[in-house]
Structures are given as C-alpha cells and as structure tokens.
Design a protein around this nucleic acid. Structure first.
Lengths: 211, 211
DNA sequence: ACCTGAACACCGTTCAAGT
DNA sequence: ACCTGAACACCGTTCAAGT
C-alpha cells in the first residue's frame, strides 16, 4: 500500500569513502524501515547511520535534527494514506460504497502500518508542526475526504452540513477506531476489531444522512 | 476535575534522612505534576527524585521501572475520567442530555489534561498492558459509558445494537475528536474545536438512534 | 526494609578537523 | 560540499554498600 521503499541493504562501510548517493532519501527509507519493524521508540540516529554504513552524525547534513527526520517520515505516511483513500473512493465508483470503502481503507492503513501511523499523529510531530511539507501532505490527505463528502452532498445523498465540519467528524471516527484497535484496547484484537470497523462505517453513514 | 493532588513542595534533601512518608504516593503525584506541566517526554526519574529530595534510584523500591510508574499515573487518569463521565451523566438526569454531557465531559477531560490523557493512551502503556490496576481502571471508565448506553436502550430511546459494540463506537468518536483537537490538527484551536465537539455529540445521537 | 552513590550502557547533538 | 570522531550533557537501570 505504501509502495515499500527500495530495499537498500545495510552495507559495510568502506573506509575513506563517502555515501555519494541520495543520502537524504536513504535516511528516510531506513528510518521508516526501523519504525515499521521495531517501533518508533527504537529509532536512533546511531542505528540509522550504522545500517547505512555512515557516521551517526552524517544526517545533520540533510536534516536539522532527529525531529526533522521523523517529520519527513510522517510526510511520506500522509502521502501514502491519501493514495489509499482516493484509490478506495475511485475503485468503488464515488457512491455510498465508495465512502464506506474510504473509511475502511483509512482504518486498514492505520492497522497495517501501526508504527508509521503513530508517528504521523504522535507528539513527535506536534512540536515540529512548522514543517511545511508535513502540513501540506496531511492537508492533502484530509482534502481527499472533504472532496468525497462534498460530492455526496451535491448528489443529494447526505446532509448539507459544513463539509469541513462533516469531514472532521468522519475523520475523528475512523481515527478513533484506529487508535482503539491499535492501543489493544480491544481485547480480542481480531474479531471485535473487525466488527467495530463495519459498525463504524455503517453508523457514519447514518450520522451524515439522518436528521 | 481530576481532584488535583496535594501540593507537596519539592524539598531540600536533609542529609542522612530518609523520606519516610508515602513515597510511592509522592512519586505518582510528582510524576503527574511533571507530566501536566512539562509534558510526558520531560519526565525523568532523576527529575522526580530531585523534586522529592530523594535519590534517583529510590523509586525502584516502589516500582519495577519507569514504565510501571507511568502506568500508575495512567491508572489515576482513568479513575478521574470515570468520575468526570458519571458526574456528567448523573447531573443531567440520565437522558439524552446526559449522554451528550458525557461526550462533552470526555472531550473536555482530554483537552484539559492533554498530557495526562496522552499518557493514558500512548505507546508507553501498551507494552505494560499487563498492569492489572491500569486495566481495571480503564475498564471501569469504559463501563460507565456502556451502562449509560444500556439504560438508553432499555428506555427505548436508542437502537438495540450490541451495547459493547455501540459503546466502542461512541468511545471511538470522542476519542478521535479529542485526539484531533489535541494534535492541533485543527488550525484555529478554539472556534473549530468547539464546533466539532457540538457537532460530534449531536451526530453520535443520530448514529445510535436512526436506522 | 529502605535508601544511596558510583558505574554501565545507552542517547541526541556539537564542533574542530579531515578530504 | 560532505563526512568523521571525539567530546558533552543527558538518559534508565544495576548493584554493592550503607543505615
């Protein structure tokens, strides 16, 4: 779904040789790989550098600090999420089914890339919310939902509430469901998680339709 | 709302003297104070110890590690949250207004104690989900919502879905709204945040009522 | 029983120095 | 321009030793 990054194997550092590739790109990919495989709290600059056969301070040539690297990874996440949402919407033909597919796609993304998803919304990001690229990527993903809801309203299928407000509500629901499933708040991770997803998208539909 | 802990001032350590109070309690209170004032990532065992005039390893007599301390703080949070929920429900007389008040109380708790709330649901807690006290406290808070929804169903006011599923859905919505507001995803923190809260509780009502 | 202080193995970040 | 290695100021945790 996320278009997994090219598998650049950790390589032994040959002495006296620079990286001389797209180190910035390589750093982001390696950070994402670490996050997905071992979790966000296992991400260390030393580890990333070592895996790339590069000094642990090399990344300061490309990022101002660790947070900036994490923000870049989060940005990638929002771009992948946006794609997942628009894909679902398009594939189901922009109708009620499309909207439900979008909701399920959102939750699936969060569950399938739980560590990455956490980074996208975690406290990490909050403080470096100045990162323009990150903000734009997040906005674009959100806009995909707004557009879909507007189309449904114009087709006369849903309540004509403020689309932005309506979108925030829908986003809240799927975000909340995703977080609950991720946090393992649901004892039996599989069965009740699946039931909640289905119930949630159905009730969203009711909420944006009925009086 | 949370019944703020007794203000035990950081005191200078007098040499050769032990704490000899309820150190466990003092550690939890101090940790919570640090979290609320400076955020969860500013919490260090060294800092807690210093504020209490105690060695930085003293807490290992009362907690197995930092995570256990954090779990205890999270447990306190769930107990306070449960109180906030039942208070709102009771004060509004168990009706539709009571349920809406509950939803707003939930979101208000999260916003007013944002750092504490984050700790309650953050990744911290996930790994030490074995902490029985924490699990019980979280369950009790959730149960308050389940009970309210069951009562509404029995009064014939809402859909007779599986109460547990319905409660998870409602919890997801308020949790999602709280997270969105907290993450500053909402540009104008005040106005649109307020609007979203109102819209959310209203749409929850619609979702659990209509077909 | 309860607490301490030194020690250990980690962090992110800075900076003068290399090529 | 890009990268390195040593150094700095932090962590959580362990453990022998004190009272």
């Amino acid at each position: 779904m996320a278009g997994s990054p090219p598998l650049r194997r950790p390589r032994k550092k040959r002495v006296g040789q620079y990286h001389h590739g797209d180190l910035r790109r390589a750093l982001i990919d390696q950070a994402l790989r670490t996050i997905e495989q071992e979790g966000a709290e296992a991400l260390t600059l030393r580890g990333v550098g070592e895996a790339l056969g590069v000094s642990r301070t090399a990344l300061y040539r490309h990022f101002s600090n660790k947070q900036a690297l994490v923000a870049a990874v989060a940005g990638e996440g929002f771009r992948a999420l946006r794609l997942a949402l628009t894909d679902a919407w398009d594939r189901q033909g922009h109708g009620r089914a499309g909207l439900e597919a979008m909701g399920l796609a959102y939750i699936r993304f969060a569950v399938d890339h739980s560590s990455h998803y956490r980074v996208m919304f975690g406290r990490f990001v909050e403080s470096c919310a100045r990162d323009q690229d990150l903000i734009e990527a997040a906005k674009a993903a959100f806009q995909a939902l707004v557009d879909a809801l507007i189309e449904r309203q114009q087709d006369g299928q849903t309540r004509r509430d403020d689309p932005l407000l309506q979108a925030r509500f829908v986003w809240s629901v799927v975000h909340g469901v995703a977080m609950l499933v991720l946090d393992g708040q649901l004892r039996d991770h599989d069965a009740s998680g699946e039931a909640l997803r289905q119930y949630a998208v159905e009730r969203i539909q009711a909420a944006i339709t009925s009086d």
